[in-house]
Design a protein around this nucleic acid. Structure first.
Lengths: 141, 141
DNA sequence: TCCTAACTTGGACTTCGTCTAAGTCAACAC
DNA sequence: GTGTTGACTTAGACGAAGTCCAAGTTAGGA
C-alpha cells in the first residue's frame, strides 16, 4: 500500500495522517467496506478523524482510479481497493457477503453493436448473485 | 397491463385505485422510473396518493416478481416493469439515461465452477456503461 | 521558520426510504 | 343493497447515507 501513497504523492496529493490512515484501512484483497466501516476502522487509529474527511478521501481515491465504488444493494456504497486487476463481484443473497471473482472472456464482447444504440460503451459490471455455503446450509436441507 | 392487474387479483391482491394507478404508471417498455417519479405521475391522476403507498406497492410488485429493482447508481432505485423478458442495462455515464439491452449468451456461463466458491449462483446482472450519442456530441469533437 | 493554499472538522442539511397509529374501503356474506 | 372486517392508505415522524459549509489547522515549499 505504500506504493499507493507514493503514487498519490506523485500526483500532488498532500500526505496527511488522515489520508494515510484511510489508505491503510483499505489495504488488502477482498476488502469491501462501507464508508462507515472505513470511518470506524480509521477512527480506531486516529480517533479525531471526521466522517466528512473519510467521504472526501474515498471520493478522491475513486476519482484517481485507485479504488472502485461498488453498489451491490440499494444501501451504502462499498469501496474496493482491488482496482488494478479487472474483476467482478459475487454477492450472497442471504447475508450480503461479497467475493471478487474472475469470469472468463470479456463481458463487453457479449453486447453486439446493434444493441449499443450509439453509445460508446466502455465498461461492463457484472454482479453474480446466489447463496453462499453458510446461507445454503442455514436454509435448505 | 390489465393482465397484470388480473394476475395480481388472482394472487389475492385487493384492487385499490392507488395500486391500479401505480401499475398504470409503470406500463410500457424502457421505463425506469424512481419511486419519486412514480409518485409524481401517480399523483397527477390521483392527487391524494401518498409516498408510503407508492413505496409499499412498488415493494409488493418487486416481491411478486412483476417489477425489477434496478440500482445503477448509488442514488434512488429505479423500477423496471419489463420483468418477464431477461435483459440487462446500458447506462449513460454522462446523463444517466438507461436502455434495456439483450447481450447474447448467458452471462452466468462465463463464471467457472472454480470461481463460484461454493455459492449456488442463480443470476447475473450486467450494467454496461458508456456515453450516449447526445453526451458524446456534447463533450467530444 | 514562516506562509499559504490545501486539507480537516463538526454540524447542519438533503435525499431516499421505512415505520406507525389512526382512518378508510374492497370484497365477501347475507 | 347493507354490514362487517381485515387489508389497505395516509400524514408525518423517523432513520440511514451522504453532501455542504464556514471556521480552524497543517503539509510542504520558500
Amino acid at each position: 500500500m505504500s506504493d499507493l501513497l507514493e503514487r498519490l504523492r506523485g500526483r500532488g496529493w498532500r500526505l496527511t495522517s488522515q489520508r494515510r490512515v484511510v489508505a491503510e484501512v483499505l489495504d488488502g484483497e477482498h476488502v469491501h467496506l462501507t464508508a462507515d466501516e472505513v470511518h470506524a476502522r480509521a477512527a480506531a487509529r486516529l480517533p479525531e478523524i471526521s466522517r466528512a474527511t473519510v467521504y472526501n478521501t474515498l471520493g478522491e481515491l475513486v476519482t484517481l482510479g485507485e479504488v472502485l465504488e461498488v453498489a451491490t444493494d440499494g444501501r451504502a456504497k462499498r469501496y474496493d481497493p482491488n482496482a488494478h486487476r479487472a474483476h467482478q463481484h459475487l454477492v450472497c443473497s442471504g447475508c450480503g457477503a461479497i467475493r471478487d471473482v474472475h469470469p472468463h472472456g470479456d463481458p463487453l464482447a457479449a453486447l453486439p453493436a446493434a444493441e449499443r444504440f450509439g453509445f460508446a460503451v466502455t465498461t461492463a459490471e457484472v454482479t453474480y448473485r446466489g447463496l453462499c455455503p453458510d446461507c445454503r446450509g442455514r436454509s435448505g436441507s
